[in-house]
Structure formats: structure tokens, C-alpha cells
Amino acid sequence: KITVTFNGEEKARRYYKKMQKHNLKVEIRVENNQWVVHVE
């Protein structure tokens, strides 16, 4: 499981979509004013 933190929504969403293309289970959320993407 990987957790990647971004300081911008745009970058986070781009990464999220990229990971989805690989058929990975991805989850995006905001934690402590940071955009966090969890990849299983």
C-alpha cells in the first residue's frame, strides 16, 4: 500500500487517474490540508 501526499488538488487528481488506469484500488482524500492518494 502506497500513500502519496500532494500540496495541490490538480497534481493529486492527475496521479489518481494515472493509477486508476493500472486497475489499482485508489482512494483520494484531504488530510491536514494536504491531498493524499492511497494506492492498494
Rank of each mutant, 00 (worst) to 15 (best):
R29G: 08
R14G: 04
V26Y: 00
Q34M: 14
V26K: 00
Y16A: 15
K18Y: 15
A12K: 01
H22L: 15
N7D: 15
Y15G: 02
Q34N: 07
N23Y: 12
Q34C: 12
L24P: 04
H38R: 11
E27G: 04
K11W: 11
K21G: 11
A12N: 02
N33D: 10
E10H: 09
V39S: 03
T5S: 08
H22A: 13
H38Q: 13
E40N: 10
T5A: 09
R13I: 10
N23P: 03
Q20Y: 06
T5M: 11
W35M: 02
V30N: 11
H22F: 11
F6S: 01
R14P: 01
H38Y: 15
V26G: 02
K11F: 12
Y15M: 03
E9R: 08
E27N: 06
M19E: 02
E31K: 06
I28Q: 00
I28P: 00
T5I: 14
K21W: 08
E40G: 10
E10N: 09
V30I: 13
K21V: 07
G8W: 09
Q34L: 14
V36L: 06
V37I: 05
N7T: 12
Q20N: 05
V4I: 12
R13L: 12
K21Y: 09
V4M: 11
K17G: 04
E31H: 08
H38L: 14
E10F: 10
V37Y: 01
V4P: 01
K25A: 07
R13A: 03
K21P: 02
F6G: 00
W35V: 03
V37R: 00
Q20R: 12
K18Q: 12
E31P: 01
N23T: 04
Y16K: 04
H22E: 08
K25M: 08
Q20A: 09
V39N: 01
E40S: 13
Q20I: 14
N32H: 08
K1H: 12
M19G: 02
K21S: 13
E31R: 05
E9D: 02
Y16V: 09
T3F: 07
K17V: 10
Y15S: 01
F6E: 01
N7W: 10
T5G: 04
K17C: 15
K18W: 15
K17Y: 10
N33T: 05
E31I: 13
Y16H: 03
R13E: 04
H22D: 06
R29F: 12
N7E: 13
E9A: 08
F6P: 01
W35Q: 00
R14V: 08
Q20G: 04
I2E: 04
H38S: 15
T3H: 05
R13N: 05
T3R: 10
H22M: 15
K18E: 13
E40V: 10
F6Y: 02
V37G: 01
V30D: 03
E40M: 13
K21D: 11
R14F: 08
T3S: 09
V37D: 00
K18M: 14
E31F: 07
R13C: 13
A12F: 06
E9Y: 14
T5E: 04
E27M: 08
T3Y: 07
Q20W: 05
N32Q: 06
F6C: 07
E31W: 06
L24T: 05
T5Q: 06
R13F: 09
K17H: 11
T5W: 12
V36S: 04
Y15N: 01
Y15H: 02
V37M: 02
I2K: 08
E9L: 11
K17R: 12
W35K: 00
K21R: 12
V37N: 00
Y16L: 10
G8I: 14
R14A: 14
R29S: 11
K21H: 09
R29E: 07
N33F: 07
F6H: 01
N32Y: 05
H38T: 15
R13M: 13
K1A: 11
K18P: 01
N23S: 07
E31T: 06
T3Q: 06
Y16S: 04
F6R: 01
I28S: 00
V36D: 01
T3E: 06
K25Q: 09
V26D: 00
H22V: 06
I28A: 01
K21L: 12
E27I: 11
V26Q: 01
M19T: 02
F6M: 02
